[in-house]
Simulated scan of single mutants.
Amino acid sequence: MSELQCHDLILSQAQAQLTETVSVLDERGERRQIEIACERPLTIYLNKREIVTLMTLGDDPEALVLGYLRNQGFVRALTEVAAIQVDWEVESAAVVTYGEPEGLEEKLAQRTVTTGCGQGTMFGNLMERLTDICLPTPQVRQSTVYRLLKNLSEHNDTYRNAGAVHGCAICEGDRVVAFVEDVGRHNAVDTLAGRMWLDGISAENKLFYTTGRLTSEMVIKVAQMNIPVLLSRSGVTQMGLALARELGITMLARAKGRHFLLFSGATTLEYDAAADADHGGRG
């Protein structure tokens, strides 16, 4: 297993097969070879203490582990982490920090099972920590949303080949800064949270895109990343919307082609492309 040194952080560079070819019968009884997405468990150990087992595609596991620990409040800065070693042979990730995370026992005692694909888990008093978040007020253009949705279609390689995965992206304007796919949307957002730290990606002027529904979990994680705009091709939940409005997050959902619904942040969206919009049937 190769390793990468990143700001005194030792990272493995674990590789995993993302798709597998299987033989199936179609509706005519004819045999076909198709690709399906792989799914594998990854158990996270923090200073030899078992934290959680994630079911993941395994595209960028080190970033996934780091982002998960970041979003759950186990680590507050990249400099707290000494090493992340992912070993697919034993399906585990060993994380070493320079000191014991504050309130570790309390966090492990407070677990909330969420609606995340593959069953997500949130630790500790995350809702209380939201009071410390102050997001900037964004400005979003309708024309930029249209261009971004078109550009995003070029990044979902695993979905095109095999389906069964969610895609998430950090975007700036109509540019895709970072994109990841995983079997669970919460894994994808955690991976991007980790990637932001590892690559030094600023939250300034960023938008977060997901193919999955906008639940309270998604809103909380993106707010912790200090990104004030959420865009999804799926729907929203009541609690997700309530949190978005409380935190001042602009939430656009059911976005596909030239259609979207604005659920929160009415004053932040500039309708600059309505005249040439396609008013045909909704896809």
Rank of each mutant, 00 (worst) to 15 (best):
Q5M: 12
C6L: 15
H7L: 12
H7E: 15
I10Q: 14
L11N: 05
Q13S: 12
Q15N: 15
L18F: 11
T19L: 13
S23Q: 15
Q33G: 05
Q33V: 10
E35M: 12
I36P: 01
A37F: 04
A37G: 04
P41Y: 07
T43E: 08
Y45H: 12
L46F: 06
K48H: 15
R49E: 14
R49H: 14
E50A: 14
L54R: 09
M55R: 15
D59Q: 15
E62H: 06
A63Y: 01
L64A: 04
L64K: 03
L66Q: 02
L69V: 04
L69M: 04
R70M: 07
N71G: 10
A77K: 12
L78V: 08
A83V: 03
A83H: 04
A83M: 08
I84K: 00
W88T: 04
W88E: 04
E89N: 14
V90P: 02
V95M: 07
V96Q: 10
V96W: 02
Y98S: 06
G103W: 03
E106W: 07
L108I: 03
A109F: 03
Q110H: 15
T114Q: 04
G116S: 14
G116I: 03
G124E: 00
M127T: 02
M127I: 03
E128C: 02
E128F: 01
I133D: 00
C134V: 14
P136F: 06
T137C: 15
Q139W: 11
V140K: 09
Q142K: 14
S143V: 09
Y146H: 09
R147H: 13
L149S: 05
N151P: 07
R160F: 10
A162F: 05
H166I: 00
H166G: 02
A169E: 01
I170M: 03
E172C: 12
A178C: 09
F179E: 02
V180W: 01
V180R: 07
E181C: 02
E181R: 02
R185D: 11
R185Y: 11
H186K: 07
H186Q: 12
H186Y: 10
R195V: 06
R195L: 10
M196N: 02
D199V: 08
I201Y: 05
N205E: 15
F208M: 05
T211S: 15
G212I: 00
L214T: 10
M218S: 01
V219P: 00
V219Q: 00
I220D: 00
V222Q: 01
M225H: 02
P228E: 02
R233G: 09
S234R: 04
M239Q: 10
L241R: 08
A242Q: 07
L243A: 01
R245Q: 08
R245W: 00
L247V: 03
G248H: 01
I249D: 00
R258N: 12
R258P: 04
F260V: 02
L261Y: 14
S264D: 07
G265C: 06
A266N: 11
T267S: 13
L269T: 04
E270K: 10
E270H: 10
D272T: 03
A273F: 08
A275E: 13
G280F: 06
G280L: 05
G280C: 06
